[in-house]
Amino acid sequence: MSKKSAIGAILGAKCPQCRTGRLFPVSPFSFKKISAINSTCPHCQANLNPEPDFYYGAMYISYAFSVALVITALTAINILIEEPELWMYLSTVLVGNLLLFPAMLRYSKVLYLYGLGKLKYRGD
């Protein structure tokens, strides 16, 4: 078998060990279990919860995503609009955070698992 790309597995939210099984039990557009993650990989049975409360550290990555979104939105408004008003900044940041919240939450958990989960790729 060919080696699967780590970037493709991260973008697809796949298991770090087999890069095939899904990390999340529901689609990204489902708000029922927005923060739920599978306890084991459905493909290779790898433990996706290495320790209790493991994913609390992912909030730092989510915070970084949020700060990057705020900086990008404020810079774009300053470049595109000559004299922006306060409500423009606030509404843009609020709407951007609301729309991107599910993606930021999911990918913060994916990056945290890939970075600190101690699961190495096994190209079985």
Rank of each mutant, 00 (worst) to 15 (best):
C44Y: 05
C15A: 14
G8I: 02
T20Q: 11
C15G: 08
V93M: 04
K118T: 11
L80V: 00
T72P: 02
E82D: 13
T40P: 01
G96A: 08
Y121R: 02
L48I: 04
K4T: 01
D124L: 14
I77A: 08
R106H: 13
A64H: 05
I81Y: 05
D53I: 01
Y107Q: 13
L116W: 14
E82Q: 11
I77S: 09
T75H: 09
C18I: 07
L111G: 09
D124P: 08
S66M: 12
S2T: 10
S62P: 08
R122I: 10
D53E: 14
F65G: 05
Y89R: 04
R122F: 03
M59E: 12
Y121K: 05
P16C: 06
D124V: 09
E85H: 06
K120N: 10
I81E: 07
C18D: 11
K3E: 12
V93E: 04
Y112H: 14
A103P: 03
Y107T: 02
A46L: 05
G12F: 00
L98N: 10
L48P: 01
V70Y: 02
D124S: 12
I61V: 15
Y121N: 00
A58T: 09
Y107I: 05
V93I: 15
F29C: 05
Y112W: 15
T72Q: 11
R106F: 14
K33N: 15
F54Q: 07
